[in-house]
Nucleic acid binder design. Structure first.
Lengths: 232, 232
DNA sequence: GAATATTTTGCTGTATACAATTTTTCGATA
DNA sequence: TATCGAAAAATTGTATACAGCAAAATATTC
């Protein structure tokens, strides 16, 4: 059950997490020697990991100049949200046909278990992870691992912006407000799915993601400014 | 206009093409020393390229055992066809809203220019490239480079199977038959797009791709057998 | 003092070496 | 003959060296 443990894999995991969290600033050049000593490995395995991350869209590469953090601009984030719509809506269509009632029940239990915690305004990260968890569980019911893989990649690349977005939402209106009253967007999607109502489920999903996408530009602006302000 | 020309990039391009064409047999282990001398580079840049290709889904990697060609099985190919539906249908929705009449005209010209060549039964590769070209042009109208990038990746990973599938179709019934008579699937999609008829366009696209997907299992079987038979 | 040329520094790109691990070979045993 | 085990061979994983290139620093010119 333990991770494999090669140097490349370890370095890969670490740099991937750093890139996802924008611990490298957008467009920042990555110094291989410095980073390799920081991570306790030599440049060879580091560069192998960096190459993987280029292919995954976390970093860019310029010949002769090395590796850079991906840039952070609204246009790209919006594209990724649109890609999410593509992937999640199609996965949902497949899930309507392929998911079992038991599986739907299991996702419902997951919502029962996690939704109460959506009140806590301090733990934006937890909320984000629960949100990602729901979407991944849903996508998994499609039984299409390619779709799930693409979704994971997208999620990781927009994670930082989503985190900022959640904090923004929490500040505007604590999410605990509508406890029990109106149904959450997630619940609406899941109910339609459980009812095998493809059209309703897909349009609810599309709506849900697009609503977040509309906030992306603002969230990117805030994210960008926060990255260049020392944490207080 | 010329390619950058670092050793990694050159090796990457070559190995990618080899992998796409299954010049490595499915699940075959890749010998780094042999391949690096074949390609005229050392193992360091080769391994960097191989790592990129793992991230792109062309190869797999096992710690301590090295790199392997991806396996070729119907399940994965079907997943990729399903992912194509997800990407291309959503791209098409966006294209309906974002494409200009001029752009639609340009794609129409492309069809005018390429469709006559669909008769030639010997040039399955040309037909495949024209087909891919059409789908990429269409996706590009969405103005979403993420979707286009994902589609390119999928196309390259299923290229070999599509090639076999086209040969299969050509053998059953020469495509030149319905010249001018009935509309090609591509033309139907494009006409609906030009009419800004989203529903018709998307359902035509879905139908078009799913029809090919249904043949995938058979095509994989043939592809598999051909890979293990010496060419005559 | 600003702009340009030149030196210096630092970093990247690739080859190579070697330890660690895996795979193969080959012989012993039942 | 098939199975297991040990030795040998081959292959991978990582560190390191160094050439070549890019960027920064310094000097030079107007």
């Amino acid at each position: 059950m333990s991770k494999a443990g090669s140097s490349v894999d370890r370095v890969y995991d670490q740099v991937r997490r750093m890139a996802a969290n924008f611990e490298f600033k957008p467009d920042e050049r990555i110094n291989e020697s410095t980073l390799s000593t920081t991570l306790g490995a030599s440049r060879t395995p580091l560069r192998e990991a960096l190459n993987r991350l280029v292919a995954e869209g976390f970093l860019t590469f310029q010949n002769g100049r090395g590796f850079f953090c991906r840039s952070l601009n609204p246009g790209r984030i919006i594209e990724l949200y649109e890609a999410r719509v593509a992937i999640e809506c199609e996965a949902l269509r497949l899930s309507v046909a392929r998911g079992t009632d038991d599986e739907f029940k299991s996702v419902s239990d997951y919502l029962d278990q996690t939704e109460p915690h959506y009140e806590n305004p301090d733990r934006a990260i937890d909320i984000l992870e629960m949100d990602e968890g729901f979407h991944i569980k849903l996508a998994t019911l499609s039984q299409n691992s390619e779709l799930v893989g693409i979704l994971r990649n997208i999620n990781d690349r927009i994670r930082y912006v989503r985190l900022v977005d959640i904090r923004l939402l929490l500040r505007r209106q604590p999410l605990g407000k509508n406890k029990g009253a109106e149904l959450s967007a997630h619940r609406i999607i899941l109910n339609a799915l459980a009812a095998r109502d493809q059209k309703t489920a897909v349009s609810a999903m599309r709506n849900h993601i697009e609503r977040r996408r509309e906030e992306a530009t603002e969230a990117v602006r805030i994210a960008y400014s926060q990255l260049y302000v020392p944490a207080d």
